[in-house]
Design a binder for these strands. Structure first.
Lengths: 194, 194
DNA sequence: ACGATACCAGACAGATCTGTCTACTCTCGT
DNA sequence: ACGAGAGTAGACAGATCTGTCTGGTATCGT
């Protein structure tokens, strides 16, 4: 067993390549517009491998969104590490979002985008609900640490700001929405801790 | 020329029935998932009529979104008529949104949903841009009437709130997002006119 | 060396999609 | 009365989609 096989496998598994290809294509172009053939072509994988690994396109979509969920978690948590003051950590959420929105491939919230295409009730809604619940939980925690008198109320407000900034960043490019949201958060944070 | 033909034509034109069917189906289920056949079936119209009237599905989509643009305009303007105080008119935006979000068929912003499905650059983006520009113009006007020191800055904030409330109302049903946004708007309005 | 496992290439089936075309009917304005 | 315009029903073409299946190849643990 070589060291390379532990740290840098020459070739990622079919599953990983599939997931990477699905992430790029689904996020950039939408789920319905991207066919299975495009995914396997980009991944360099046989169609049979996709179906033996995931079973269906729906399950591939679920895995794609679960990966996005993980991505949001790590990005937010890592991005917030640089702030120490609890108030700065609240506002830092919008700075992280602002940086993300400035990257070339940004196309808004993957979960909202997926929800906009599909019928409700499927895997998409499940993962979206889970992600929104996690995000709200983070906001409650940050609000509490910042000394909000009603952390849940402030978390609701931060959720509105986060969603609004995300929409603005997607629809009006370039957009100042994340910075605007940050300033709004500051005002509301002051009001919530007064 | 009978009076009926002016006010209550026995049967709406093929174009109108097509538009009504497209609006219901596209908004409820998304654009890509709904095929032409479903639209003409619901409209009770021949396929040839669709293509002779609109030319392509893309143009039907544009017409659908233009109808949605008109709908937003009239709903907002009508809904705001009941308020006299300029400050109430600003907050009234969120009350109108709240009422709309409570209706059964609510599925969020038609323009954002359409943008989430399609590739950028097409008719969808054009109409979306126009609608967002109109909406922002309305917010600037309301902000100015309410005595905001910087109406454009307040309009940017209101836009974030409006988008965020709309997302929340779609993703977390039932959602308090519109009411939360209204309260936030009140705080920000106070700060902007102090 | 060898069998299991993972993977690849691509044909194929069956459904569905957009868009075209033919041929018939109905309703008006003149 | 009659021709034009608008609409209807539905077959059809060609592309594309998901999902299945066959058959071959490479890698790896034992």
């Amino acid at each position: 067993m070589s060291a390379a096989s532990l740290t840098t496998p020459r070739k990622p598994s079919a599953r990983d390549r599939l997931l990477a290809a699905a992430d790029e294509l689904f996020y950039a172009e939408g789920i319905h517009t991207v066919g299975i053939d495009r995914v396997i072509e980009r991944a360099g994988v046989a169609k049979a491998s996709l179906y033996s690994t995931f079973g269906s396109k729906d399950e591939l979509v679920r895995a794609y969104l679960e990966g996005r969920h993980e991505l949001r978690r790590t990005r937010l948590l890592k991005g917030l590490e640089r702030y120490e003051d609890p108030r700065d950590r609240v506002l830092g959420v919008f700075e992280v979002l602002d940086e993300l929105a400035g990257t070339p491939g940004f196309r808004g919230c993957a979960f909202y985008n997926a929800s906009a295409e599909g019928t409700p009730g499927g895997p998409v809604q499940e993962v979206s609900d889970a992600t929104r619940a996690w995000t709200r939980g983070l906001f409650v925690e940050l609000a509490r640490d910042a000394g909000a008198k009603d952390p849940h109320a402030l978390a609701d407000q931060l959720t509105v700001l986060y969603d609004g900034a995300s929409v603005g960043a997607k629809m009006d490019r370039p957009s100042m929405a994340p910075q605007v949201a940050r300033d709004m958060a500051e005002i509301l944070l002051n009001a919530a801790t007064a």
